[in-house]
C-alpha cells in the first residue's frame, strides 16, 4: 500500500510516471534474479509469470497497457474507505497513465531455416570440441564458463529455438527474451528507446533492430571498423571518399 500511496502522491505532484517496469525496479528483475542452475525447477512466482508474459508481448507488435501494467491487479489489504477510494483512483490512473513504449516492430533477421536440414536427423553431440563446417568460424567469447556448449542456448533438435529458464523456449524472433535473463536492464532500455538502434519514424511506428543485429551472440564485443574521412583542415581540400556507398539513385519525381 505504501507503493500505491507513493504512486498516487507522485502522480499528484506530476513528477512520477508509471512504467510497467517500475514495479519490477522496486523489487527485482525476476528473470534476472532466478537461479541459473540448469536443473533448477523452482516454481516461478506470480511476478515472474507476469514479467515473462510481459516480455513476450513485444513480438506481437502491440503493447497492451492493460495487460502489461500489473499495478491494476494489485490486491488491497487496507480497509478504511479513504484507502479504498485511493485504490480506485490508483487503478484508474494506472491504466490511464501506464506508459507503454512507443509502437514498434522488431525487425527479424532474414534467412531461411537451414539448420533443420542437418539437425533434424543428426544426433546432437554435447561434448565440447573444435567445430567443423559450417560452424568452423564460430568463436565463443560471450560465455566463458567451463563446459559451455551449444545446447546451453540452442535446442539440439531445432537450433533456431532458444532455451530459456523453466523449460521455456523462444524463437529467434524473440531472442531478446534470452538476453533478458542476464541483461535485463539493457533489454528494458532497448524496449523504451535508450539502447539500440531504431529506424523509421520518431512519430508513429518504429522499427527496432534486434539484439543480434549489432551484437554477435557468440562474440558480442564491437569489432573496429574503418572511419569515414576526416574534415578538411582550414585552407585545404579533402577528396570526398565515403566509406558507405551512395544510396541507389531513383529517378526523382517531376
Amino acid at each position: 500500500m505504501t507503493e500505491s500511496l507513493y504512486h498516487v502522491l507522485g502522480e499528484l505532484m506530476g513528477k512520477f510516471r508509471e512504467h510497467p517496469t517500475n514495479l519490477l525496479r522496486w523489487g527485482e528483475f525476476p528473470e534476472a534474479s532466478r537461479c541459473f542452475g540448469a536443473d533448477c525447477r523452482s516454481k516461478p512466482s506470480n511476478q515472474v509469470r507476469a514479467y515473462e508474459k510481459m516480455s513476450a508481448i513485444p513480438s506481437q507488435l502491440q503493447w497492451n497497457a492493460k495487460t502489461v501494467c500489473p499495478l491494476g491487479k494489485k490486491k488491497m489489504t487496507a480497509k478504511p474507505a479513504i484507502l479504498v477510494f485511493l485504490g480506485i483512483m490508483l487503478t484508474l490512473t494506472s491504466v490511464a497513465v501506464a506508459a507503454p513504449p512507443p509502437p514498434f516492430e522488431v525487425t527479424t533477421p532474414a534467412g531461411t531455416d537451414k539448420c533443420i536440414s542437418c539437425h533434424a536427423w543428426r544426433q546432437p553431440d554435447p561434448t565440447p570440441r573444435s567445430l567443423k563446417k559450417p560452424h568452423e568460424t564460430l568463436v565463443f567469447t560471450h560465455w566463458p564458463l567451463p563446459g559451455a556448449w551449444c545446447d546451453q542456448c540452442h535446442l539440439p533438435e531445432s537450433p533456431r529455438q532458444l532455451i530459456l529458464h523453466h523449460d521455456q523456449t523462444a524463437p529467434f524472433t524473440e531472442a531478446h527474451r534470452l538476453c533478458n535473463q542476464c541483461h535485463a536492464t539493457k533489454v528494458r532500455d532497448w524496449l523504451y528507446g535508450a539502447h539500440g538502434k531504431r529506424i523509421g519514424n520518431w512519430q508513429g511506428p518504429r522499427r527496432l533492430l534486434p539484439c543480434a543485429a549489432c551484437h554477435n551472440p557468440h562474440q558480442p564485443a564491437w569489432k573496429p571498423v574503418v572511419p569515414s574521412s576526416p574534415p578538411a583542415r582550414p585552407g585545404s581540400q579533402n577528396a570526398w571518399k565515403p566509406v558507405v556507398p551512395p544510396p541507389k539513385t531513383t529517378e526523382s519525381q517531376p
Partner: peptide, 29 residues
C-alpha cells in the same frame, strides 16, 4: 515524422531523437 539521417546511419544506435513534450517518447525515457 521521420528520424534524422545521423540516427539512421549510426551503426551503434548511440543517438536518440524524439519529442520531449510526448511523455512516452524515447527521448523522455
Amino acid at each position: 515524422g521521420s528520424l534524422p539521417a545521423c540516427l539512421e546511419a549510426c551503426p551503434t544506435g548511440a543517438r536518440i531523437f524524439g519529442n520531449v513534450l510526448d511523455p512516452n517518447s524515447e527521448i523522455r525515457y
